[in-house]
Simulated assay, not measured.
Amino acid sequence: MGLYDIPAMVDYVLKQTSVKKLIYIGFSQGGGTFFIMNSEKPEYAEKIGLFIGLSPSTRNLYSKSLVFRGLLAFQTFRAELETVGIWEIGRRGSPAIGALNVLCQNKLVAAILCEAITIALDAPHLESITPEIERRIWKYFPAGTSVTNFEKFGQALESEKFLKMDHGPEKNQELYGSTKPPEYNFEASTVPTVIFHGLSDHIVDTKDVEWFLPKLPNVLDYIQVEDPLWNHLDMTYSRFWNETIFRPMKKYMAQYDSI
């Protein structure tokens, strides 16, 4: 994603709009893959006027999420899953996910089962995500991802650094020239940067954010949401998003829009 997909999207937008630079807003993995792009293709920093990171996910050493910590298992079972032809988890349109999407449209089920899953994934903030928004989330979530991506997150839960994929000593030697995966280079992200984060984020913990922040060379602002219950999913789904996130974000977007 960081090496191919995001650079392709950046180039496409620049070509279609004829602007010199764009503003990149990345939530969670969308923030982490932005750092990967800059590390692997540092020339792309010249194409971005401003980076806004909403709880960017890099290493996840201190994650408190029970569901997210379950991804550790994919380090053990990925090969077995792929052997039997399972390459993707949570695919939209699959019978199990389709049934969950339908069940969570029921108000009672959404209020009990689906909200319980959301809380296990992140942290409780009951007044922030309304029942209507909860049902809307579960109409489209989850959308699926590869078992490789799950394994990479599993590795990030145990690593003290933001590392490339660990394929094992032999494959690492072939790909990286060393038996261990190298670190991504945060210093290559020279783009003016604004980071938003919530103190009750159980997926991307404050300790992990404050670990990578000093490594970034051009941080304009680090905004910790005042609400102590603000969690990971609030960054995109909260009914208070406009006032809490968009207003300060808009200030920086206006400042860097003409660059």
Rank of each mutant, 00 (worst) to 15 (best):
A143G: 11
V219Q: 10
I137Q: 13
E82W: 00
G53Y: 06
H202L: 03
H232M: 05
E46Q: 15
R135Y: 04
K139A: 14
P124T: 02
I117N: 09
A110I: 01
K161N: 14
D166Q: 04
R136F: 11
V219K: 08
M37N: 09
Y256F: 15
P217F: 03
M253C: 12
T145H: 02
N149H: 09
L103H: 10
I117A: 13
W138K: 02
F240D: 15
A143V: 08
L163Q: 14
A96S: 13
F240S: 14
Q255S: 11
P124Y: 07
L72N: 15
P42Q: 08
I195D: 10
I36A: 12
R135E: 00
Y237N: 13
T76W: 03
P217M: 07
K20L: 02
P56F: 10
A99T: 06
I36P: 00
S128F: 01
G26F: 07
I86L: 04
A110S: 13
K139R: 15
Y252R: 07
E226Y: 02
T193H: 05
K139S: 14
L81W: 05
F212E: 03
Q155M: 05
P228T: 10
A123H: 14
F74D: 10
Y176W: 05
Q16A: 10
Y44A: 01
Q16H: 08
V67Q: 14
H197P: 01
D205L: 01
G30V: 04
L213C: 01
H125E: 07
Y4W: 14
I223K: 12
D208E: 08
L233Y: 14
C104L: 06
G144W: 02
L100A: 14
F141S: 07
